[in-house]
């Protein structure tokens, strides 16, 4: 479903992504982990062109997303993206946040969009907060609304860029719970996260990145019990020490 071939990206002199090739299959849940600055966020942001690439090819459903003439808005409408800092629209209620894109991109009538948005908010346990504004919600609630907002476009793929990193520890669980349920429903997901428990339980595969390269690809079982690359071993040792 998502195919990367020799993707390269530079920030000036800094080589952020080095010859990254990878395939994500339909219904697969892939967790990307690695130390900060390893290129995880950059990688996931290239998948819906929030970042451009300098070399290589990224195809989604066989279509090269960096090809000239591609409709970037149509591309993004079909890819849900969840940010570290939620990025909810503060001037709109939770419900309006979830209706904005479907209504304005004419995906559904206002009535249908409202009904589906309510269904999604109910799905993330926030139907009772539909009329609340983002600043009236806790971080965990905001992130759950953000997930509902992304789902409102009915995307076949969801990308998560450190969705729990900005949350207080006691709110991490509620967001991961929503993500677990999505994975259980067969959603294709790519998640950049430091939540190793989530990775262990939910991921089909784990990609370990360091210095812009994917150094290890493994099932959670293999990754956590006998990581092969020294950097991955170091990464896991540092985590378990905490």
């Amino acid at each position: 479903m998502i195919q990367l071939d020799g993707v390269n990206k530079w920030y000036g002199q800094y080589h952020a992504l080095v010859d990254v090739s990878e395939h994500v299959a339909k219904n697969e849940v892939v967790v990307v982990c690695g130390p900060s600055g390893s290129g995880k966020s950059t990688l996931i942001r290239t998948l819906n062109r929030l970042e451009e690439i300098d070399g290589g090819r990224i195809a989604i459903d066989g279509r090269d997303i960096h090809a000239p003439g591609i409709d970037v808005n149509a591309l993004r409408a079909g890819i849900g993206f969840v940010f570290q800092h939620f990025n909810l629209f503060p001037h709109l209620s939770a419900l309006e946040n979830c209706m904005l894109a479907p209504v304005n991109l004419k995906r559904a009538s206002k009535v249908e969009s409202r009904a589906y948005a309510m269904e999604l908010l109910d799905g993330v346990g926030l139907a009772h907060k539909a009329d609340a504004y983002p600043h009236e919600l806790s971080g965990g609630q905001q992130q759950r609304v953000a997930i509902a907002r992304a789902l409102a476009m009915r995307p076949p793929v969801m990308l998560f860029d450190e969705p729990t990193s900005a949350l207080d520890p006691e709110m991490v669980g509620e967001v991961l719970g929503v993500m677990r349920r999505l994975a259980g429903q067969g959603m294709t997901m790519v998640c950049v996260t430091h939540e190793m428990g989530f990775a262990r339980d939910v991921a089909d595969r784990i990609l370990f990145m360091s210095e812009g390269r994917i150094l290890e690809r493994a099932t959670p079982e293999d990754f956590f019990t006998h990581p092969t690359h020294p950097r991955a071993q170091q990464f896991l040792a540092d985590r378990s020490g905490r």
């Binding site: 808005n73 993004r76 940010f83 990025n87 904005l100």
Partner: peptide
Amino acid sequence: GQLEGARSLGLS
């Protein structure tokens, strides 16, 4: 993040 949030949904 506001512009990115909007663009990520497919808004022009």
